[in-house]
């Protein structure tokens, strides 16, 4: 199942010292729902504030991006620019 890693401190307000998760999910939305179930409020935080790097490729606002069983998923702050 996809392996999810939290890479920033803002997420730890929800997950405490837990920074890695194995989540049964076929899409980003399923992953977010499962993390919301485990840590109430975390899902909304992810949707609003986090970008999602799937196998090295950064996605923003991509709820329906597919996840593979062996996907490496990093939650990182959303990125803007100048």
């Amino acid at each position: 199942m996809p392996h999810v890693v939290v890479a920033c401190s803002s997420c730890r307000a929800f997950t405490g010292d837990v920074t890695t998760f194995d989540v049964e999910a076929a899409t980003v939305r399923e992953m977010i729902r499962e993390l919301e179930r485990r840590y109430p409020g975390f899902g909304e935080h992810i949707e609003r504030k986090m970008a999602i790097a799937i196998d090295g490729e950064i996605h923003q606002d991509a709820l329906f991006e597919p996840l593979r069983a062996e996907s490496e998923v990093y939650l990182i702050p959303k990125i803007g620019g100048g």
Binding site: V5, A7, A53, D55, G56, E57, I58, E72, Y74, L75, I76
Partner: peptide, 14 residues
Amino acid sequence: VHDGTKASYGPTFR
């Protein structure tokens, strides 16, 4: 860093 290196901010570079 190279392709396959885990970036300092998390994801793997491609």
